[in-house]
Amino acid sequence: MRTDDLVGLLSTGIAPVKSGTVARRFGISVPVAVIGATALMVAVFGIRPDLSTIAKTAIFWEKLAFPLCLAIGALIATVRLARPGAKVGTGWPVMAVPVVIVWIAAIAVVISAAPQDRLPAILGHTWRTCPFNILLLAVPGFIAIFWAVKGLAPTRLRLAGAVSGLLASSIATVAYCFHCPEMNPAFWSIWYMAGMLLPAALGAVLGPKLLRW
Rank of each mutant, 00 (worst) to 15 (best):
T3R: 15
S11E: 12
S11H: 13
T12F: 13
V17G: 10
V17R: 14
K18I: 14
T21E: 15
R24V: 10
I35G: 11
A37K: 01
T38K: 06
F45S: 01
R48D: 10
S52V: 11
A55Y: 00
K56M: 05
E62T: 07
F66C: 00
L70N: 00
I72P: 02
G73E: 05
L75E: 04
R80K: 11
R80Q: 11
A86S: 14
W92H: 12
P93V: 12
P93L: 14
M95L: 13
P98M: 13
V99Q: 14
V99K: 14
V100P: 12
I104Q: 10
I104A: 14
A106Q: 13
A106W: 07
A106I: 15
V110K: 09
I111S: 11
A113V: 04
A113F: 01
D117V: 03
R118A: 14
L119N: 13
I122V: 15
G124T: 06
R128H: 13
T129R: 12
F132V: 09
F132E: 11
L135G: 12
P140T: 03
F142V: 10
F146C: 02
F146N: 06
A148H: 05
A160P: 02
V163N: 04
G165F: 00
L166Y: 06
L167T: 05
S170A: 02
A172L: 02
A175Y: 06
F178P: 02
H179L: 03
P181V: 05
A186H: 09
A186F: 08
F187Y: 09
W188T: 02
G195P: 10
G195S: 04
M196T: 05
M196S: 08
L198K: 03
L198V: 10
P199K: 08
A200I: 09
A204I: 02
L206V: 04
K209Y: 02
L211C: 05
W213A: 00
